[in-house]
Design a protein around this nucleic acid. Structure first.
Lengths: 228, 228
DNA sequence: TCAAAAGTGTTCCACCTACACCCATGC
DNA sequence: GCATGGGTGTAGGTGGAACACTTTTGA
C-alpha cells in the first residue's frame, strides 16, 4: 500500500441568489498561504469522516445552516501535485445551493466571510487563492446545467415562493431574461415541478401571485430552456 | 496540516461497444482483499503525478492504448472510510471510452482482464469488489447522459465509421432501438457532428455507406433523443 | 385612474416521429 | 431477381418563442 503524505480536503462552492444576482460565499484567509486572499470555504477530511460529511460540517460551520434541506452535491476533485504550496493536498469540491439567508452569515472562525457576486469573481482570475477560481467556475457551470433538467432552482427559494421569484433564480443564474408568461406556463404545466401552497402574496407588487412549494419531480421533461 | 494516513487511487470505467453490447473492462484480482473477484482496473496515484496522469497511465497499462486520442473524463470520487478493508483509500473514478480494439487486451500485470457486458455486471451487485458496482453504475450513467448532448459516441468508433455504426453505439449504450432513417438525417444535419471522409464501404452489407469522421462540434444542439 | 405584476390565448415555426418510398450493392 | 441495408420525402403532432390581451392588486 502506498500511503504517500497527503492531505484530503473538501471545498465548498456555496451559491445563493441575492439582489437578483448569483452570489458565492467566500472567506478571507487569516493564515498563510495566501493570507488575506479570498478563498472558498473548506477544510480537511477527518479520519473517520465520509467526504460528504466533511462538506456538510463545513457548510454548517460557515453558514449556520443545519445541513438538512440544503442541496449538496459533489462536483469534481482537484489533485495537481503543486496546487497547494504546503504539500500534496487533494480537494474534493462540493456545490451547495442555499436560499437567500434572512440572517447574516453566522460568526465563524474564518477571519471574515461574505457574499460576492459570481460574475465579479469570475471576471478576475487572480482574486481567489489556490485553484479556487477553476473550482468556482466548474461549480457554477454545474449549477447552470442542472437548472435545465432538474427542479433545483427551487433550492434557492424559501419554502414558499411565487413563480416570478423562481424565474428570478433562473435569470440570475443564467444571466438571461426569460419571458414571464411562457415561463409561468412551462413551470405550472410540468408535472410535479411545483405544487400549489394555496395562499397568495403581493410581496412582488402588482396583482397577487399564487404561492408554490417544491414538487416531487426529480428531473424535468421537457427541460427548461435558456433562450426564451 | 492534517496529513492523515491515506491512500489515493484512480479507478477506471473503461467502456467499449462490442458485438452490439456495451462492455466494460474488468480485471480479476490476484491479491487480497477480494482475491479472485472482478474489479475495475486502477492503481495508486504516485507522489508527483496528477490524478488524470494516473488514470492515463493505468489505461495504457491495461489496454495498451497510447493515451492520446482516448476520451477520458473524471466522474466522481469515493471516500467512505471503510470502503477498503486495508485502510483509508480514496478513489477518483475516471470514465474512458475506447473503440472496439482489434487486438485483444495487452498482457498486463493483472491476473487476467476481460470485456464483460455491462448489463450482466450491473444485474449482479455482488460481482465486483469494493464499491466498484456503484462506480460502474455512475460511470455508465454518465456515458448515457453524455451521448445525448455531446458527439462522444464517435469515441467508440474507429477513425472512419458509417452512420449505422454510430447508430449501433447509441443503441448499445442506451439499450433502445432507433429509427435508422431519422437517425441518419439528424446526425448528418447537426453542424459539425460528423464530416464526410469521402469514401464508402460495404462492410455492413447492402448498399454502400458513406464513411465519416468525427466533426469539430463539442456539444450537440438540438440533442440526440432516446425515444425515436 | 394609473402602474405593475399575474396569468391566459393564440399564432408561427422548429423539430421530432412515423412511415412510404427509392437507391445501390452482393448473391 | 431478391435480400439487405443506405438514404430521401413528407405528413402529422408537440412544444418553444413571441406577443396581444385580460385580471387584480397598491398607490
Amino acid at each position: 500500500m502506498d500511503f504517500v503524505p497527503l492531505g484530503l480536503a473538501a471545498d465548498l462552492v456555496i451559491l445563493t441568489v441575492r439582489d437578483g444576482a448569483l452570489q458565492v460565499l467566500l472567506i478571507r484567509r487569516g493564515i498563510t498561504p495566501y493570507q488575506g486572499r479570498w478563498a472558498l470555504p473548506g477544510g480537511f477530511v477527518r479520519p473517520d469522516e465520509d467526504l460528504e460529511q466533511t462538506a456538510r460540517r463545513e457548510l454548517a460551520e460557515e453558514t449556520g445552516l443545519s445541513s438538512d434541506r440544503i442541496h449538496l452535491e459533489q462536483v469534481a476533485t482537484y489533485g495537481a501535485p503543486a496546487r497547494d504550496p504546503r504539500g500534496r493536498v487533494v480537494s474534493v469540491a462540493y456545490l451547495a445551493l442555499v436560499p437567500d439567508l434572512p440572517a447574516p452569515v453566522a460568526g465563524t472562525d474564518a477571519a471574515s466571510a461574505s457574499w460576492v457576486a459570481v460574475g465579479e469573481v469570475l471576471a478576475d482570475p487572480g482574486r481567489l487563492a489556490f485553484d479556487h477560481h477553476r473550482i468556482l467556475s466548474d461549480g457554477v457551470e454545474r449549477a447552470r446545467a442542472k437548472l435545465e433538467y432538474s427542479p433545483l432552482a427551487a433550492a434557492f427559494c424559501p419554502p414558499e415562493f411565487t413563480i416570478s421569484e423562481l424565474r428570478g433564480v433562473y435569470e440570475a443564474v443564467w444571466g438571461t431574461p426569460l419571458d414571464p408568461r411562457n415561463f409561468h406556463r412551462k413551470v405550472t404545466k410540468t408535472p410535479d415541478f411545483v405544487e400549489s401552497a394555496g395562499a397568495t402574496t403581493t410581496r412582488d407588487g402588482g396583482r397577487p401571485a399564487q404561492l408554490f412549494r417544491r414538487g416531487t419531480a426529480t428531473t424535468l421533461y421537457p427541460p427548461m430552456t435558456r433562450g426564451g
